[in-house]
Nucleic acid binder design. Sequence first.
DNA 1: GATGAATGAGCGTTCATTCAT
DNA 2: GATGAATGAACGCTCATTCAT
Lengths: 207, 207, 207, 207
Amino acid sequence: MRAPSYKERERQRREQEILDAAEQLLIERGYAALTMDDLADAVGISKPTLYQHFKSKEDLAARVIVNALQMLEAHLQQPHGDSPLAHIVKTFRHLLEQRHASGGVLASLGPELVVKAIHTSPLLAEHKARIVKLLGELVDEAKARGEIVDSIPTSVIVRSMFCLQSALTDLEPDLEHSLIGVIHLFLYGIAPRADAGSEPTKERRNP
Amino acid sequence: MRAPSYKERERQRREQEILDAAEQLLIERGYAALTMDDLADAVGISKPTLYQHFKSKEDLAARVIVNALQMLEAHLQQPHGDSPLAHIVKTFRHLLEQRHASGGVLASLGPELVVKAIHTSPLLAEHKARIVKLLGELVDEAKARGEIVDSIPTSVIVRSMFCLQSALTDLEPDLEHSLIGVIHLFLYGIAPRADAGSEPTKERRNP
Amino acid sequence: MRAPSYKERERQRREQEILDAAEQLLIERGYAALTMDDLADAVGISKPTLYQHFKSKEDLAARVIVNALQMLEAHLQQPHGDSPLAHIVKTFRHLLEQRHASGGVLASLGPELVVKAIHTSPLLAEHKARIVKLLGELVDEAKARGEIVDSIPTSVIVRSMFCLQSALTDLEPDLEHSLIGVIHLFLYGIAPRADAGSEPTKERRNP
Amino acid sequence: MRAPSYKERERQRREQEILDAAEQLLIERGYAALTMDDLADAVGISKPTLYQHFKSKEDLAARVIVNALQMLEAHLQQPHGDSPLAHIVKTFRHLLEQRHASGGVLASLGPELVVKAIHTSPLLAEHKARIVKLLGELVDEAKARGEIVDSIPTSVIVRSMFCLQSALTDLEPDLEHSLIGVIHLFLYGIAPRADAGSEPTKERRNP
DNA sequence: GATGAATGAGCGTTCATTCAT
DNA sequence: GATGAATGAACGCTCATTCAT
C-alpha cells in the first residue's frame, strides 16, 4: 500500500504541465485562438497525447478554470479573523499577484472570453457560482459591519475584483507600486465615505 | 476640389454600415468567432465586396477599434472647463454607457481581440498611444490640482477606466444603479484621501 | 422568365458529378472507407467545394441513396398491366443492370453498411419504407394471384431482390448470361411449386 | 517433438479468444468501425498484446475470415453420400444459421471488409479460391446428376449462397420460418425445371 | 462594381501502431 | 511477456481569401 507509483506521479506531473501551458496560452490569446497544436508544441508533446489527458479542448479549458477557481476557493475558505474586508483585500492581492499563474484566467470570467465558450460545463458553472456566492457573502458581511460602502451593488464589487486584474501590466516600471495602486483604488473605491452620499467630484473639491 | 461624388458618398455609407455590423458582432462573439460570412450576411452584401473595403479581417477589426478610439479622442478633446476630473468622469461614464455601442470593443483591449491586432497595425498603435497620452495628461493635470490622489500611477488609473467596463453586465436588475456604483468605485478609488497615505483598512476602522 | 441560368445548370451538373462519383466509391469501398479527400480528388475539385453542395458526409451519402431509391420508386410506380410478377421481374432486372450505376448502393441496404451509418436521416428512412412497402404490396398481390409461392415471407423475397445484386460480378465472362441466371434463380425460387409443399431435394430426385 | 507446452497452449487459447471477439465486432460494426482499442477491451487485454499475436488490423481481419473459411471448408470436405445437392443445401443452411457466429463475416464478402483485405492477403485469396473451387465442383457434380439446373452459371450459384445470407434479418418475427423461406428460394431457384428452358413467368401462368 | 463559386491552410479529433518500462 | 503512454497520419469540417464572370 504505497504512495502513487512513479508512473502515476509522472502522469500527474505531465498533466499539470499541460494545464499550466494551457493557462498561459488562454490568458495570452483567449479560448478560440488557443490551438491544440500550439499547446502540444508548448508542452513538448504530441497532439494525441493531449487527448489522453483531456477528452476535448473544452474539457481542458474547463479544467484550467476549475483549477483556478479551486485555488481561489481554498483561499477564501481560510478563517478570516474578525474583519471580512481584510480577507477580501488579501484575496484581491492574491488575485493580482497570481495574475499570470493560476488565477489569470479568472480575469476573463466577467467579459466572457472563455466562459461563453465553456458555458456547457455544469461543473464549471457550479464552481463559479460557489465562488461568487462566497465572495458576495464576504462583501455583504463587510457592508453590514460598515467596512464597505452600501451604495455599490455587491455584484459590481465582486466583478471589479476580477476585471481590475487587467489594470496591471508586466511592462510597469515598478510593478509592486502599481499593484499597491490598484489595491488602493479598489479599497478606497469601496470604503465608506466620510461624508456619506456626496459625490467627491463636487464635495471634496470645495472643502 | 468638388464635393465627394454620389458614388463616393454611397461607398462611405456602406463602409460605415460594415464597421457598425462588425463592431456589434465583435462585441457579441469576439474576434475569432466573427466570420466574414456572417458579417457579409449581416450587412446584406457578398463576401468579396467586404474585401473591396477592407483588405483583411485583421484590417477590418483594426478599423473598428480605430473608429472607437477616434470617437473617444473626439470626446476627450472637447474643452473641459476648469476641472480635469469632471472631464475624466464624464468620459468614464460615456465609456460605460457606450459599452455595447461604439466603445465596447475597447473593453476587450486586454486579451484575444486586440493584443495581436495592436502589434500588427501601426495605425492602431498610434491611435491608442494618443488616447492613452491624452487621458494620462488629463489625469496628471487632475493630480496636480489635487483632484486625484498622487499615490496611484497614472497608467493604472487609465487602464482601470477601460477594464472596469467589464464590471458591468446587462443582466443587472437595475443597470443605472450599477453604473453609478462603478463610477463611484472608480471616483472614490482615485479621490485624494482625507488622511493621506493611510490604509483605509486600518485607519478607518478605528477612528 | 427563362430556364435556369448557365450558372445554375453548371452547378447542377457539378452536383450530379459529385453524386455519381460518391456512389461509385460507396459501392466500391463502403461508407466508412469513403473519404471526402478521395471523393474531391475523384471529381477533380477541392474538399471545401464538396461542402458547398452537401453539408456533411452523412448528408451526401443520404442523398446518393435517396437518389437511387427515387429512381427505383419511379420505376415501381409505372403502371404494370395485369401481372405483378412481370413488374417485379422487370424491376429486378433493372436493379441488376444498374448495379454499378444508380442502384448499386441499394445492395447494401440489407446488411447495412451504409444504412446503419445513415440511420439518422428520417428522409432516408421514409423513402426506404415507401419502397419496401411498394415492393411488398406487389409481392403480396402476386402471391394472391398465385404467381408467387405463399410459403416464403414477403420480407425475405423483397430483401433477396436487393442482396442478389451481389451475386453478379463484372469479372463474369458472359455478363448477360449470368444476369439471366440470377433472374432465373430468383424467378424459379419464388415460383409456385408444381407439387406444392414438397422439398425438391427429395421429391424431384425420385420421380 | 513434445506436446505444446502450457505456455504455448495458453497462447493459442488467447489467440482464439481474440479471433472470436474480433469476429463478433466485425459482424456487428464492420471493418472500419472496429477499433483495436475496443477489441483489446472486449478481450480484456492491452493493445500491444494484440500486436504480439497479429501484426496488423488487416492481418487480424484476414485471419478471422480465414478461420471462417476453414470451418466452411471442413464442413464441405465431409463425405456427402450420393447427393451433392443435399450436401450443398446442408452447407447453405449451416451458413445461414451461423450468420452471426463463425460464418457471418462471409456475408460481407462483397463490400468494405474484404474487398481490400482479399487483395492484400495472398493467404486469404488462396483460401477463398479453394472454397469457391470446392463449392463449384459440388455444384457441377449436382448439375451432372441433374440435381441442379444447367442454365445458371456455377459461379452465380456459389455467390448466391453467400449473399443470400443478407436476406435474413434478426428482426424477423419467426426466424426459423424465414430461414426455411430463404432455403426454399435458393433450392427451387436452382432446381431443374419440369419444363426445361421455359420462363416461369410465361409458361406457368397459362397452363 | 458586385458576386457565386473555389480553395489552401488549418482545426479538433481519432486510430493503428510502437516504444519504454 | 504484458502494458501505459506516445505519436504520425489522417479524417471530417471550416474559414479567410481570391478568381471568373
